[in-house]
Design a protein around this nucleic acid. Structure first.
Lengths: 234, 234
DNA sequence: AATTCAAATCGATATTTATCAGTCTTTTAC
DNA sequence: GTAAAAGACTGATAAATATCGATTTGAATT
């Protein structure tokens, strides 16, 4: 199970200054307050970090590893909204609604997560308008991302959705055309809204057509132009 | 075309106090400032209020009528995100991103829209943290709504999606089981992510099964329990 | 009332996607 | 090192959904 720990890479919130642009707005005192409410927990691959429906008391920042953020849909199906990387602030959705988590987060990797008390965070929002503004910026960007995702999920067919998924992973998550996929085939399916079998089929097709090179979880995008084209034509 | 006007129901922002809970947080002076930047425009049914891709200079509040908020997807298809009612603040998504509209808004009715300058609004956010907090609340709720919509669009089949659409219209838009639909059949399809023909078919099916009573645009939900059941089972 | 045009409708068909059953591979557990 | 389990894969089939063509309806206009 997860256990408490102090890691080298995140000794206190003041260090996070450089890594999380949003926090650099805060005064030393505000950072200190956040730091006092925070603690770190390590998770093993596959472990659940947040569980949808449970009460939301803390925000989350990964300091190492990757995680998937997903909502639990109909008949135990998961819909992966996005992949979480270190130094993003997670859990905003539940901040002001009903203090419940509206999605689950599970580690895709051995990860370290830093938890910050929601109340401490709210206090900073209330007292530092520039920080609040930055937070709004963050929320609205996620809103726009949501729109794009909805279009992809509802209007594109499988090839287009897989293309969108691959482009997302390469450009936003791994920031490289060549990466070691942390997602299982089922995860890829849950990210693109199709059955596992269909996801496997399309990936294989892309592989056979020379658009990607896929061997197990080693993935390389060979023809990103064509991937873009497939994404656009749906 | 749309023309300038002063209407009885919205003489100035101070009156909006009662109607828009968020604005009641503002001081008289802040309201006055918003009021000075604002103007009203009337739109006829079908007219475009915001067009996706154009530059975003104003926020929007409908004072009369209804409108659809939609994104332009692949191959000229529309995806209706939600229906706009009077006294909601619209346009947040573009506030802090790239000053472009990321969706379009079109009148479903003869509507009156009040435009508020984005800069005036931003200023209030920067100076009034409680207002900023309220704004964040608003954004995060929309985020949660987005998740539900994504699940509906990607994991439910047509019956479930139409059920979701009808429940949404009855509970959130018209707040009545019995209403005069402002949406065309194509709009219903765009709201639920399917072809027009399919939407017509499912609606007819629901009608034949006694779940709804549908005559042209007069719609009455007869069995909302079953509609809920259909929504849940997908 | 006749005309016109857009919206709504419906049956037949084609396409897309999921499901299922079975095999193969890789990792995990003892 | 071997057994077991989980994940990956594949072809065949079934189910869901879109598309197409042809009417019909209804509202708006002459």
């Amino acid at each position: 199970m997860a256990k408490f720990s102090k890691t080298e890479n995140c000794k206190n919130c003041i260090d996070c200054n450089n890594r999380i642009p949003m926090l650099s707005i805060l005064s030393k005192q505000e950072l200190t307050e956040l730091n006092e409410s925070r603690f770190e927990v390590k998770f093993k691959t596959g472990e659940t970090i947040f569980k949808q429906g449970t009460s939301a008391t803390h925000l989350l920042i990964l300091t190492t590893g990757l995680a998937k953020l997903y909502v639990e849909g109909v008949q135990d199906k998961q819909l992966i909204i996005r992949i979480i990387k270190p130094w993003e602030i997670i859990g905003q959705a539940s901040l002001y609604f009903d203090n419940r988590h509206h999605y689950s987060i599970a580690a895709l990797d051995n990860t370290t997560a830093c938890f910050i008390e929601i109340d401490a965070f709210k206090k900073v929002i209330q007292t530092n308008p520039l920080f609040a503004e930055e937070f709004i910026k963050n929320c609205t960007q996620k809103g726009i991302f949501s729109f794009e995702k909805m279009v992809s999920l509802s209007q594109k067919q499988m090839h287009g959705r897989i293309a969108d998924g691959l482009i997302y992973l390469a450009s936003k998550v791994y920031e490289d055309l060549n990466f070691d996929l942390h997602l299982s085939r089922q995860d890829v399916a849950d990210l693109t809204g199709m059955s596992k079998d269909s996801a496997i089929r399309i990936l294989k097709e892309f592989h056979n057509e020379g658009i990607i090179d896929l061997d197990g979880r080693k993935l390389k995008i060979l023809n990103s132009k064509q991937l873009e084209r497939i994404s656009e034509t749906g």
